[in-house]
Design a protein around this nucleic acid. Structure first.
Length: 288
DNA sequence: AATCGTTCCTGATAGC
DNA sequence: TGCTATCAGGAACGAT
């Protein structure tokens, strides 16, 4: 396979970005800040801090919600902040005098002498101030698909699969269909369900759909239980790693033996993303 | 309406 | 050692 004029002999460095379990881990930890009052706000980059973020000074945190991979912190006086970490965004709670992480773009000084910082090397993420009653109208939330572990049901899954000819892996990553799945958990769920990632969605067999539905829910639940996956860059609110990376069956395991059948794990590219799977026990089966 | 390709960005890496 | 091209990916956006 010719990828470029250059041959890469070593595996490429792969970031792992926050997906539903990682964002949920952070959301749970942010709940410990409920009741905190914002003393001051420092913005280092206004393209990352959208809207008039100074309006939260003096307000108290009253709740933390999650919509797919989007975090919403609700403050008193009907003000909210929507935060998307995208690839390398990170939220950290530090003591007042602690050195902020590299690439810190926004700092919230809390009245308890702690700071909540938003840092992001890639700068794809954002922190956006919005009226609480406008949160549900955010385009991202308006277009978001069903939420796994909540209202994502088997009949809904069957319906969206039947309507799509896209490769199943690509469909799983579509946030307007299913909220919160990313590259890791989509690949892992497909391995568990023994479904080939390039299978057109509408061609999945009934038993494959049921297996995949169960696998999506189980990988996300286990991801949350393990505090997310820190294959590389992800850290939680306290700067600590999750442990789900130790349980990867396919993700970032190119060439390593499948734990089920021993065949080497393959890596392909789909819609510009890397997909890891076992070519033997996730072989494309017979379709009518 | 659904799907696809491009874009944003920079740390890590390999090759020279 | 230093320089440079390449690559990773969530989701917005434009094109088909």
């Amino acid at each position: 396979m010719i990828r470029s004029a250059r041959q890469y002999t070593r595996d490429i460095f792969i970031f792992n970005m926050p997906e539903l379990p990682e964002v949920e881990t952070i959301r749970l930890q942010l709940e410990s800040l409920i009741g905190e009052q914002i003393g001051n706000v420092t913005v280092h980059r206004y393209d990352i801090a959208r809207g008039d973020i100074e309006t939260i000074v003096g307000k108290s945190i009253i709740g933390v919600r999650r919509f797919g991979k989007l975090i919403v912190i609700d403050f008193s006086s009907e003000v909210s902040v929507a935060i998307h970490l995208k690839m390398t965004g990170r939220l950290s709670v530090l003591m007042r005098e602690a050195i902020a992480p590299k690439h810190t773009h926004v700092e919230l000084l809390l009245r308890s002498n702690r700071r909540l910082t938003f840092s992001d090397a890639r700068r794809f993420g954002y922190i956006q101030v919005i009226a609480t009653d406008e949160v549900d109208n955010l385009p991202f939330i308006q277009n978001l698909g069903k939420e796994p572990l909540k209202d994502f049901t088997l009949p809904y899954f069957q319906t969206i699969l039947k309507k799509s000819s896209r490769p199943i892996k690509t469909l799983l990553l579509d946030q307007t269909r299913i909220a919160g799945l990313g590259n890791i958990y989509a690949s892992e769920a497909l391995w568990i369900a023994r479904v080939n990632p390039i299978t057109p969605a509408k061609q999945l067999l009934a038993k494959e759909i049921r297996a995949l539905f169960k696998a999506i829910n189980s990988v996300l639940r286990e991801g949350i239980q393990r505090g997310g996956a820190s294959d590389n860059t992800y850290r939680d609110l306290r700067g600590e790693k999750g442990s789900y990376q130790h349980f990867f069956k396919v993700y970032n395991r190119k060439g390593k033996p499948c734990s089920r059948c021993g065949a080497p794990i393959a890596m392909i590219r789909q819609a510009g993303r890397s997909t890891f799977f076992c070519p033997k026990c996730q072989a494309l089966g017979m379709r009518e």
